[in-house]
Nucleic acid binder design. Structure first.
Lengths: 200, 200
DNA sequence: CCGGAAAGTGTCAGTGACTGTCAATCATTG
DNA sequence: CAATGATTGACAGTCACTGACACTTTCCGG
């Protein structure tokens, strides 16, 4: 039970990525708001109704890859040693992002996505919403780890702020990386070092 | 030119707040998503078309007060002395929020709004979008101040991260304040002290 | 007081995202 | 082959939002 049906799941993923690829090229060509779901569905060769069977909304087509990246961050953070400081653990959890931007092909693809997201306030807001959800996940994870390390529960407000602060560094570095994609990792390191909190 | 027509503006504001009050009571009663614009317009006594002449979207009815609070923060930050550290300036710029939550009546109203926003992912995302816009404004303001203070331009990435970190503290303290609204100011102070960055 | 501009409003029609329903089809399994 | 469950398309409907147009009210100089 749980993670079963992998054969069906695989074909579902295949259809999803076919839709995503088609949609993204349309978004690049015409813009996000200007592209209708009907057009995407027609380009893929399915009905509009079927499109919504693979993606809950038009937003999700773009934000889906972010979702999968988020899962990476969670597993990365889980793998960090207990005695490491939260700030350092978060920095290491961000490594998948750095790696992704190191690959030139991925970087180009992500830059295109970022451009699409930035061009639509509505989509950008949805993007921030996903980021916030990820921060909540990581906060809970770090909270559980802190309890396991020392018995008592730590200051949850500060912990949440630490996670938010780390994401602020990540976000600032990513904005910078749009203009200068090289040495993203170094830029992130510098920013997180400047922002390292006294506590945690 | 510019800020003219104040008489007309006042009546416009009056209508807006009448709509907002009516809408908020409906949102509290039935939820945000479950309340249609038609219902709001009918409750106020106007056509749906006229509703959209006062608010650009359904979201804006709820997020409008946030927008005005944001203006307060900007003017507060502008009034801070140049030689003060960015972190301390930001803490003082947050004072309107603290004052607002100190007034029991305001607090109750804002708590209701926060509940509405939290209950709708779509609206919550729009809320985050507004917060991000505000962070951009404050970042640019601080950037201009830094240039005026010492000649050269500072590290914009770190500056943006500092503003984001301060907002992370504010956000974390506000989340905490939902459960325990007392001593919000103290909680914010504690969190921002723990997160005080080495630079800036 | 009057005539006309300006501002506010209602009505209607239309677009686009999204949902529920139902019947048809396709694949799987016994 | 037959039963079964998943996938799909077609259709209708809701709701946020927009543009166009006609109507009324308000305002203001003559």
């Amino acid at each position: 039970m749980g993670a079963g049906g992998s054969l069906r799941e695989v074909s579902r993923r295949a259809v999803q990525s076919r839709i995503a690829r088609t949609a993204e090229s349309l978004f690049v060509a015409k813009g996000f708001e200007e592209t209708t779901v009907d057009e995407i569905a027609a380009a893929v060769g399915m009905s509009q109704r079927s499109f919504f069977r693979y993606f809950a909304s038009k937003d999700e087509v773009v934000l889906d890859s972010l979702e999968r990246l988020g899962l990476d961050l969670v597993t990365r953070l889980e793998a960090r040693p207990l005695e490491e400081s939260e700030w350092d653990s978060l920095r290491h959890a961000f490594e998948p992002v750095v790696e992704r931007l190191a690959d030139p092909e991925m970087r180009e693809h992500d830059a295109a996505l970022q451009k699409i997201v930035d061009a639509s306030p509505r989509l950008f807001a949805a993007y921030l919403g996903r980021l916030d959800g990820l921060q909540r996940e990581l906060s809970e994870l770090l909270l559980a780890r802190a309890v396991r390390r020392c018995g008592g529960a730590p200051d949850t407000v500060v912990l949440r702020a630490v996670v938010g602060g780390a994401f602020a560094c990540l976000h600032a570095a990513m904005v910078h990386a749009v203009a200068r994609p090289d040495d993203f990792g170094h830029c992130l390191d510098r920013t997180m070092e400047a922002m390292r909190p006294a506590a945690a």
